[in-house]
Design a binder for these strands. Structure first.
Lengths: 204, 204
DNA sequence: AGGCTTCCCGACAAAATAGTCGGTTTTACA
DNA sequence: TGTAAAACCGACTATTTTGTCGGGAAGCCT
C-alpha cells in the first residue's frame, strides 16, 4: 500500500505542476524539461509515469481540470432551485476569484480549448467532455427551474446555456489584460439583466 | 518604384501566409521554417524583411488582422443608426461566415489574445489596440443610439459593449468544435432577446 | 539477507528551432 | 552596359525539444 501511495503522490505532484505551468504559458510553450526542472525530477522519472507529453496532458485534464471545473461551476448549481440566481451567483464568485487572483491567466478550460481547437482530437475530446458536463448541468437545472416555476416556460434552456458558457469564456479572457474588477461588474450587471428576461412572470 | 512594389508584394505574401498559419496552428506551434516551406522562400529572405518572429507577428497583427477586424466588425456598424439591430446583423453575418467556413478555427483576434494573455506585452499591446477600436466603436454607436432614440437612456453602453465582445469571443470558440449552425442560431436568438431589453420603449 | 519489483536517474539520440552570415542573383538607373 | 543597391539564397550555429535506454537506489516480501 505504501507503494501505491507514493506512486499517487508523485503523479499528483507532476500533474499539479503541469496544470499550473500549462495554464500559465500554454501547452506548446511549456516543455517537459521546464516542468521537470521545477519539480526537481528527471526525464526517466517522467517517462516512467507517462508515455508522452500529450498523454500526460490528457491525464491532467481528466483528473485535475475536470474536478476544478466541476467544483467551481457545476457543483454549486447542481440540483439547486431558483437556477437563474444560483447561476449568476456562481459565476460572480468565479469571476471574483479570478479578479482577486494576482496571477490570473483566464479560464483554464477555455484557454486549452482555444489552443487545441480543430486539432489534436484526443485532447479536444477530453476538454469537450468537461464542457459538456457543465452544459448539461446548466440545461438540466434550467429545465427543472421551469417545472418549479422559477423560469419562464418559453425560455430555451439549451440556448441560454450556450449563451452563458460563451459569455463566461469571453469575459474571463478579457479580464486577464483589462481592468478585471470593472469588467466583472459590467459583465454581471448585463448578465443579470439578461436573466431577468426569463424569470417566470406570467401574471396568472 | 518597381522596387518598392516588389518589396510590398513579398512582404504581403509573407504576412498573409503567416496569418493563415498562425491562425490555424497557433503562434508557438508554427515555426518560421513551416511558413517558409509553404512560401518557397529562404531563411535569408525572411530575415531580410523582418528582424524576428515576434516583430513579424506584430506586423501581421497591425496590418492584416487590424483591417480584417475593422472591415468585419467595425465598419459595418460605424456611424449607423439603430445600433442594436445593426450590431446584431453584423455579428450574425460574421458568425455565418465562420459557420460556412470549412476551415474555421475561431475568432482570430480572440485566439491570439488567448495565446499571449499575460505575457509578451508588445504583442498584447498590438492585439489590445484592435480590441479597443472595436470596443470604442460599439460604445460610440450605442451612445449615439441613445440620443437618436433607438436605445434606452438607462442602458450602460460600456457594459453592453463588454458583454457583446465577450459573448462573441466565446461563441466563436465554441463553434469550432461544436455544431456551428445550431450554436449560431442559439446565440443569435439569445443576443436578440438581450438587445430587446435596451430598446427605447418609454411610452411617453 | 536475498531477490524482486517499483521508481527514478541522467546521458544520449534525433529532430526541430530561431537567428546569422557570406555570397549570389535581380533590378533600377546613370 | 556597367554598377551599386536591394532582394534573396542556403549552409551553419546555438539551443531546445521529445523521447529512449541501461543502470542504480529504494522498498517489499520471504
Amino acid at each position: 500500500m505504501e507503494r501505491n501511495l507514493k506512486r499517487m503522490a508523485t503523479m499528483h505532484r507532476m500533474q499539479a505542476k503541469g496544470l499550473e505551468m500549462f495554464y500559465q504559458n500554454g501547452y506548446f510553450n511549456t516543455s517537459i524539461d521546464d516542468i521537470l526542472k521545477e519539480l526537481s525530477l528527471s526525464k526517466g522519472g517522467f517517462y516512467y509515469h507517462f508515455n508522452s507529453k500529450e498523454e500526460y496532458f490528457i491525464s491532467i485534464v481528466q483528473q485535475l481540470l475536470f474536478r476544478k471545473v466541476y467544483s467551481q461551476l457545476v457543483a454549486p448549481i447542481e440540483g439547486k432551485e431558483d437556477p437563474l440566481h444560483t447561476i449568476a451567483d456562481c459565476l460572480d464568485k468565479s469571476l471574483e476569484t479570478a479578479e482577486l487572483n494576482f496571477l490570473d491567466y483566464g479560464f483554464e478550460l477555455g484557454n486549452f480549448i482555444n489552443e487545441f481547437n480543430g486539432k489534436h482530437p484526443e485532447v479536444m475530446r477530453a476538454l469537450n467532455d468537461i464542457l459538456k458536463v457543465w452544459e448539461v448541468c446548466l440545461i438540466t437545472v434550467l429545465q427543472k427551474g421551469k417545472t418549479d416555476g422559477f423560469v419562464s416556460r418559453h425560455a430555451d434552456s439549451e440556448a441560454i446555456a450556450s449563451f452563458i458558457i460563451s459569455s463566461y469564456m469571453g469575459i474571463r479572457t478579457l479580464m486577464v489584460d483589462g481592468n478585471a474588477k470593472n469588467l466583472r461588474y459590467k459583465y454581471m450587471s448585463q448578465l443579470r439583466h439578461y436573466f431577468k428576461l426569463m424569470e417566470h412572470n406570467e401574471t396568472v
